[in-house]
Amino acid sequence: MGEFEAIRPYADAEVCPVLERLLADDAFLSTLTRYRFPRLAGPLGWLLKPVIAHYLRREIQGVDSVTALQGKIEPYVDRSIEHASDGISYSGLEQLQKGRPYLFLSNHRDIVMDPAFVNYALYHAGLPTPRLAIGDNLLQKPFVSDLMRLNKCFIVHRSLTGRREKLAAFQTLSAYINHSIRSEGESIWIAQAEGRAKDGDDRTDSAILKMFHMSRKDEEFASTLRDLHLVPISISYEYDPCDQAKARELYIRATTGSYSKAQGEDDASIALGITGYKGRVHIGFNPEVLAPDADAKQLAQRIDQAILGNYRLFPVNYLAYAMWDGRDPQLQVPTASELFDSTELARAEGEWQRRLDACPTEQRPYLIMQYANPVRNQYRSRAGLL
């Protein structure tokens, strides 16, 4: 495992020492104090931090493995997930074989909640949770890196700028993913493309698929992908807590040609993504790709058809599509009133209007696009127009 030392998740033997390090980390305890007691953290932080450390030490007593730690925090994660949603549904889990590791490839809308919902579905189905890919741009503080690696996360080096360094990093990442699935029998989750689909247009980057093959150049591309047991996942949120921020970013990019993140913007997105209202959420596990295409672009298109075809469309998606300038005249898309009952539709109309009212007029086309794109994509997929 030496070659993967810098990116791998922590092993069971490392859990206790890392937990001890976290309990002594002032930045970690300060963050928890501000989250739990936002009004008291400033004047009484010096008093509250030792209390929180004592409480955590008692809570994790006897935790000496990653599985035990996940079992300990799962109820808190579940409450957080369920509190900010109107219900979580999932489909396709019966197609997964117990004992077989998979390469889960999903669309990407939320930094933390995408893999969290996948874990939620698998955990409650009695299946092992996967190792999770996370970009190093989100690990600015040592305690965040520790927390993520304790929770089966491995690091994707996205902040490298040199071509040679990037190539070496992708080679290591490819080797790690193959090693995890083929040698250790541990599943992997990774997003279909780098960065969230802020415009709601979910597309698989063929470069991601080529990366899986980089460390197996002596094998055929299709053979490597077949042995990784690729399973596309469709993650559908009725409402995106970060939709206003995404609309703002898209507007700025469109009008100025670029966008620079403010300091702490990713942290704010993570917090809002976790705590913000999502409405209903559906996690659709598609069938395993048993005979991958030999061409990465063709395979990417096939994965897109699976993810887009299994995306759960809600009333808000049809309401947005009806307002969108990007409607496709070739498609026969029904109206929301044709598909949903009056009570459900009235509730969606009220929430959608609230979001429109909160969005500056010039940014609204980008808010509408986020919710409308999944409709166009799914109906294009059905019509064979992707």
Rank of each mutant, 00 (worst) to 15 (best):
E20V: 09
I7M: 09
G45M: 07
S85T: 14
E20L: 12
S89P: 00
G92I: 04
A11G: 13
S80I: 04
R57N: 08
V112I: 10
A116T: 12
A13L: 05
A68R: 15
L32M: 08
D64Q: 12
H83R: 15
Y76V: 11
A6Q: 12
D114E: 02
A68F: 12
D26P: 07
L32G: 00
Y10C: 01
F37H: 13
Q97N: 10
I52K: 05
G71H: 13
I60L: 08
F28P: 01
R34Y: 13
P128H: 05
R131L: 10
C16T: 13
P115N: 07
D114S: 01
T31L: 07
F104A: 02
Q97R: 15
H54D: 09
N107M: 09
R57P: 03
H124K: 14
I60V: 15
N137P: 05
A13E: 14
V77S: 08
P17L: 05
L96T: 06
T129H: 02
S106V: 08
R79E: 10
G2H: 14
K49S: 02
L139C: 04
P75M: 09
V77G: 00
L56I: 13
V18M: 02
P101A: 11
L23E: 03
K49M: 03
H124C: 06
F28D: 01
V18T: 07
V51N: 05
R34A: 15
I111G: 02
Y35S: 14
R57K: 14
T31W: 10
R100D: 04
F104H: 04
T67D: 15
A53E: 05
R36N: 05
V15P: 00
G62F: 15
D86Q: 09
A133D: 00
P43M: 09
L139I: 03
L29N: 04
D136A: 10
A125E: 12
V51W: 11
P38T: 06
F104C: 00
I88N: 01
L132T: 12
P38D: 00
Y120E: 00
Y35E: 08
V112F: 12
R21M: 02
I60R: 08
F37V: 05
P128T: 08
G99N: 11
A13H: 12
I52S: 03
E3K: 14
I134G: 00
N119G: 09
R36P: 00
D78Q: 14
S65G: 06
V66H: 04
A27H: 14
P38F: 04
R8Q: 07
I88S: 02
T33E: 05
M113S: 04
L69S: 03
D86W: 08
Y35A: 15
P115W: 01
D78K: 14
A133P: 00
F37D: 04
D86K: 11
P50D: 00
L19H: 01
P43C: 11
N119D: 11
E14F: 06
A13M: 05
G126Q: 02
Y123W: 10
R58T: 10
F104R: 02
F4G: 01
R131N: 14
R21H: 13
T129C: 07
L19C: 10
